[in-house]
Design a protein around this nucleic acid. Structure first.
Lengths: 109, 109
DNA sequence: TGTTCATATCGGTCATTGCCGATATATAAA
DNA sequence: TTTATATATCGGCAATGACCGATATGAACA
């Protein structure tokens, strides 16, 4: 009864998530995605679909390839999910996973 | 009224803490210190004084200098505190800081 | 004072990460 | 089928991080 049926975070996953969060830019990406309308207002598609990869590029002054890599790290850690629509990649926060991670920290750290 | 008068975590500090936690060994160190009696039973001094730097060395298979560096990173991030007594260095978890950090994550991540 | 013990710091090596431009892939449009 | 657009991956380079042995610091004790 401590953790209901929330997604469980394995030790290996916890380490991977912490690594993903060790770069300030990636943390920023996650935080921006909390309020998409404030940070990605120039997006043509509705923000409910997720944030288009290209949107990050404009906000952060990094190259396209670097942004793509950062997003990939976040995705592999499970903190965001990727949905491809046409030629675009839409990323979304994985709220369950993020919450589970913080809960894991609360319990173990 | 959101944060009472808890220690506040600045953005720069948050980044430094996340970096400190990006190495599994350092996370382990912190977790071991939650239950000192289980992990550092061979310590001569009472665990209430903190954990003697040398104790970590025995548990983790790293060299003395490497352990010292890891502890220094945790201390600079404010996650542990250092008290010198005689020739020994006693480290203790900074519970307020750890709690404030997790709270910060809950609010911003 | 010199010796011992605990820990911190230094110097160097090797592995990892961050970054970029260039290229590959894949969809969409002409 | 060619062209354009969006994103991922590759190759290489520079910066950072992890690790160690050796050395320095500093306290305790003979």
């Amino acid at each position: 009864m401590t953790d209901m049926n929330k997604t469980q975070i394995e030790p290996t996953e916890k380490a991977e998530i912490l690594k993903a969060l060790s770069h300030p830019k990636r943390v920023e990406f996650l935080e921006w995605m909390r309020e998409p309308e404030n940070h990605f207002c120039s997006q043509a598609h509705p923000v409910e679909m997720g944030i288009c990869a290209g949107q990050f590029e404009k906000c952060c002054g990094l190259s396209q390839s670097t942004v793509s890599q950062h997003l990939s790290v976040l995705e592999k850690a499970g903190l965001i999910t990727l949905k491809r629509v046409g030629q675009w990649s839409f990323y979304q926060r994985n709220e369950d996973r993020i919450a589970a991670f913080i809960e894991e920290l609360r319990n173990t750290l």
